[in-house]
Write a protein that binds this DNA or RNA. Sequence first.
DNA 1: GAGTGGTCTAGACCACCAA
DNA 2: TGGTGGTCTAGACCACTCT
Lengths: 247, 247
Amino acid sequence: MTKHQKIAADLRDAITTGEYPAGSLLPAIPDLMSRYGVARDTVRDAIATLTNEGLVLPRRGVGTVVRETAPVQLGYSGSRAVARTWQDQAGAGQDEVISAEWEPADPEIAERLGVEPGSRVVHRVRHFAKGSGIAQITDQWLPEHVVTAVHENGAGDLADAAHRPDTGADLFRLLADAGHAPVEADETITTRMPDPLEREAMELPPGVPVLVTYRITTDGSGRPVETTTAVGAGDRMSARFRLPLKY
Amino acid sequence: MTKHQKIAADLRDAITTGEYPAGSLLPAIPDLMSRYGVARDTVRDAIATLTNEGLVLPRRGVGTVVRETAPVQLGYSGSRAVARTWQDQAGAGQDEVISAEWEPADPEIAERLGVEPGSRVVHRVRHFAKGSGIAQITDQWLPEHVVTAVHENGAGDLADAAHRPDTGADLFRLLADAGHAPVEADETITTRMPDPLEREAMELPPGVPVLVTYRITTDGSGRPVETTTAVGAGDRMSARFRLPLKY
DNA sequence: GAGTGGTCTAGACCACCAA
DNA sequence: TGGTGGTCTAGACCACTCT
């Protein structure tokens, strides 16, 4: 085990055993340098390891802060009305439509929606905010025939974010009223590290991954009525499901 | 923007634009040193950034390899028989029971199962393997009354991994036969970086987070029959759901 | 053996924060 | 103002891989 690995292991143990509780500071770099008899960058390597594990957050002028371990909300508090609920750690936030516009479907979106690549779709971008920051960025696409049906039903233009700010269940009701009631969603959830843009938008500290959700929603005939890609901050979002079991 | 940030940004762009496709090598460190006129550690800082983003994987004696971008499997290939399926990128793997033993319930498990802390529960550990490596580690706990019911039903001892290696749907059938049919699962999915033990067990490269699933399964009376915590490799696992919609 | 990345040093200067 | 972490250098040696 190298020196910086040894230092990282020592500090990690001290954090997990509670010697350095959440919110407290690790010893300063010069302190650790003399304690272990190593150079500055060796200590920094060790701290970088813990930073990338999401354990600590170095702050200039302050010190290396031990991060809160994100408690995962459990227990039976969810609603039975929907099979799936997004939640953060302490209740709901605000889902806001940032933009909505027509665009040609790229190959992936076209395949998800079962339309020809390049055909017209409405692309809606939403930000789910909790407190001061953005916790999830959602990209949603709807095929032209669904948007047209909603419009002809007198419900307005889904490509107009200002006049149709609907999200989630509200949007689904619009589709249902227009004869395209969503009856099933096919969701796939995975995770990865954020790219720099996502890191900036959601103010993600180092060592925090994102939850990525891909969804295709279909109506009674099995035809897709919308597809969604959502990227959520891993330290603030979790996905919760109530599933009827068959086996 | 600092020098190492600039270098990282340049390399990231080159990767995403396809100049360095997956599997290819980045320029060697001495090469980048002379190209940018910087010291070795400055280049290493830049490469460390990309490593922690999951983009590259430095290999001694070889070079800095551009990683495959994990393609997410989409489309309608899942079974309707169960509402949720775990899958890796190319089919199913092997779920093996590593251990099964009685232990006193710690406070969290006791709360999930609705039993007294310290009461006897069976703790089963499973490894889900795909190819050569472990893709998911599952910890499962069952309350004493359920284990007893299965045993009295003549189905053997769930604390005996060798004789009761059942997982997933097979295990659920045992519970159902013993009068504790699971009818609903409450799942919460989140993500975080792995700890060193998880990283070693699942052979996780740097920059790969884990998917964490918490589940409580209940029978027809709403009483928990098992609870599970699963940790899956973010680059090999995704969770897929088919959800009936209500709104 | 040649080339790759990994570790480590000793020192310097900068950016930031709180008292 | 003093202490914190962030960046960067020039050089050295080590561990590993491939030929």
